[in-house]
Computed example of a mutant assay.
Amino acid sequence: MHEYFAFALLGFTSFFTLINPLGVMPIYLSMTADLDKEMKKRTARKATIVSFIILVLFAITGQLIFKFFGITINSLKVVGGVIFFLMGQDMLQARLVRAKISEKEVNSYTNDISITPLAIPMICGPGAITNAILMMDTAESIVFQGILIIVISIVCFATYLILLNSTRIYNLLGETGNNILMRLMGLIVMVIAVEFIVSGLTPIIRTILKIE
């Protein structure tokens, strides 16, 4: 039971920090400023549902993709760790790295902003997708796989609730509060990144040096 809880806690922490709904929140507010309450709710719901489906699909089919392209999970751990580290570094400096969208691009997305860019790549970015694949690979049984899918659904639902109440939360925390939270989450992401890099490099180095 302790292993299940530890796995679920790691999954929730990593997905929540990588998805970073508090970082998505200001962008969501700006992009839905001209929409009525019902349309804002529909946009948030669709964005989180699409993100959930994509994460689960990549978690389930990730290994098949690796086999097809001849990619090893250890290589992905190293690359994923680097991605996480860079994201964490930007978050530690309170920069919304996923909000690099020009005003011209945002205007072109107004027909369906719930899918692009809200779901992809803001909520369901490369970091979250990589994390889904890596965690599914470490899932030792169907129970662990089920826990991972449940965790992804919980994080997506939490993201939906945060976006739904984004105006209230943003006003409550203020700019300083949001920056502090983002720095804390950035630190957690960087710690996770180091763990992934070390766990990925260790077997690669052992193979190169022919260490049993």
Score class of each variant (00 low, 15 high):
141 S>Y: 12
127 G>P: 00
149 I>F: 15
117 P>R: 04
111 N>K: 14
94 A>W: 02
47 A>G: 07
183 R>V: 11
177 G>D: 09
130 T>D: 01
131 N>P: 00
98 R>K: 12
44 A>F: 07
94 A>S: 12
120 I>G: 03
110 T>A: 09
154 I>G: 05
140 E>V: 12
74 N>T: 06
5 F>I: 14
197 I>M: 13
109 Y>I: 00
103 E>M: 05
172 L>G: 05
190 M>R: 08
28 Y>P: 05
177 G>T: 07
161 L>T: 10
120 I>T: 09
86 L>H: 05
177 G>L: 07
82 V>G: 03
200 G>M: 03
172 L>K: 14
39 M>C: 10
58 F>H: 03
178 N>R: 15
180 I>N: 09
97 V>A: 11
144 F>L: 06
81 G>C: 04
161 L>V: 12
20 N>C: 08
205 I>S: 06
85 F>H: 05
100 K>G: 04
63 Q>K: 11
170 Y>D: 12
173 L>Q: 08
167 T>L: 10
22 L>N: 03
123 I>E: 00
62 G>S: 03
2 H>I: 15
102 S>V: 02
107 N>V: 02
198 V>C: 10
61 T>W: 03
127 G>V: 02
77 K>Q: 10
44 A>I: 08
101 I>S: 01
120 I>S: 02
194 V>E: 08
93 Q>V: 04
18 L>D: 00
196 F>D: 01
138 T>M: 13
165 N>Q: 11
197 I>N: 04
21 P>C: 05
87 M>P: 00
93 Q>N: 13
147 I>Q: 06
88 G>N: 02
173 L>P: 03
